[in-house]
Computed example of a mutant assay.
Amino acid sequence: MSAVLDLTCDLIRRRSVTPDDAGCLPLIAGRLAAVGFRIEHLRFGDVDNLWATHGDGGPVLAFLGHTDVVPTGPEGAWASPPFEPTERDGVLYGRGAADMKGSVAAMVVALERFVSAHPAHAGTVGLLLTSDEEGAALHGVREVVQHFGRTGQRIDACVVGEPSAKERLGDLIRVGRRGSLSGTLTVRGVQGHVAYPEKANNPIHVFAPALAALAAERWDEGNADFPPTSFQVSNINAGTGANNVIPGELVALVNFRFSTASTADGLRERAETILRAHGVDFSIDWQLSGHPFLATPGGRLREVVVGVCRDVCGIDPEQSTGGGTSDGRFVAPMGAEVIELGPVNATIHKVDECVSVTDLERLPGLYEAICARMLS
């Protein structure tokens, strides 16, 4: 069994359902300490984080990942136990195989190899891991970055190991991500009997025209790097459960995925203006989980990762800003260039999550090549 496959299996066996690390970070810290990394265990709230570094000064190249996984769903629906790594027909099955214990293992193996081959490398190489990416993400990388702001720790370039590929390793890298702005909207009405609507005010009826206007609004046109901003409603709840009662309140969950063509403040203001224009009596609690970020075309890390994919995988990668959010959204505001490179994402969060063993065994080579090109 290869080093990366062996470590991936060891990590999968640890039932690290967010935010429980289940011992993954101490295992990794021990391995990296053995090859000369400085180890910092950073615990915030109930979340364990690890910052391991080798070398001194700049540039600072960080690899970023998470050890926590989402729940399995019905374990009986899996073809093999989700926390017992199982290889079938060249594919490794297990919760976290793709998202993202395979990438974490590949990073560890790549860093071990790199510092052994280049003990006096330029700059600093680091590994930042958290057990709070799949959950609330309040005490993971978000808080680590705040800690770095207090201590003066910088990151110049960051490779995130999120599963990025579509069909095979290296066919797509993420060079940015959209921002995410969510809102919990409360529409106030007046409860009453459905037979006497004149004595009530139905918040569902009031909200419906405003919702149509919000859904039809063209928030921006996007730009060369991002698609247009999207608005979605993920849940609407109203009513008492009785068919003869007009509800007194409606609660809707809304979300913007926005590009650099818009700002969170601008989207909030425009949405609230539409609601007021339709006479909606409302309050809304906004939550900004991340601003959009983009690795500038021509940036050093972006060029290196594209070149490594070409040289190691024999493919010219698509450079995308699609998908959801990642912990890269916390690191980018530090001034870091952020690129995401990992295995195929087709099965993440699903029953029978899996990763190609061939892709997994090639991944350390990509990460090690990035280190060599960035810190030589």
Rank of each mutant, 00 (worst) to 15 (best):
V125P: 08
R43T: 15
W78Q: 13
D20H: 08
E87C: 12
L294D: 02
D281T: 15
V35Y: 08
E249T: 15
G76Y: 04
N255P: 05
V60C: 04
P364T: 14
Q319A: 09
E249H: 12
C354K: 14
V194C: 09
F114G: 05
E361P: 01
H278K: 09
T186G: 11
E318M: 15
V233T: 09
S376C: 05
S2T: 15
R302Q: 03
V104G: 07
L267K: 11
P228R: 06
S326A: 11
K166P: 00
C309N: 10
D225W: 12
L64A: 05
L50P: 10
H118C: 08
A224M: 00
K166H: 06
V308I: 09
V175S: 13
P71D: 01
C158S: 06
T347E: 06
R218I: 03
C371Q: 09
E167Q: 11
S16W: 01
E269I: 07
N223L: 00
H139R: 10
G279I: 08
A62L: 15
L32C: 12
V312W: 01
V304A: 03
V115L: 10
V190P: 01
A98H: 01
T325S: 04
A106F: 10
A106Y: 10
D132P: 01
F282E: 13
A213Q: 05
G279S: 11
V357W: 10
R329M: 06
L375K: 02
S289N: 14
T347G: 07
D89Y: 09
E198D: 12
A137Q: 00
T260L: 15
E303W: 04
I204R: 04
R88E: 13
L7Q: 09
E318R: 15
C309D: 00
H291D: 14
L275V: 07
G290C: 07
L250I: 06
P59V: 12
A212K: 14
V159F: 13
P228H: 01
I274Q: 12
P81H: 04
T72E: 14
R270W: 11
C309G: 04
G307F: 02
R178Y: 01
G179Q: 07
V251I: 15
C371H: 14
L61I: 06
G179P: 08
A120D: 15
G335Y: 13
I39T: 03
V190H: 13
L275W: 08
D68I: 05
M100S: 12
L267V: 12
A212Y: 09
F114E: 03
I284S: 09
V357L: 14
T18W: 06
V304M: 04
K101W: 10
T186P: 07
R188T: 13
P81V: 10
H291V: 08
E133Y: 08
P228M: 03
A210C: 10
D352A: 08
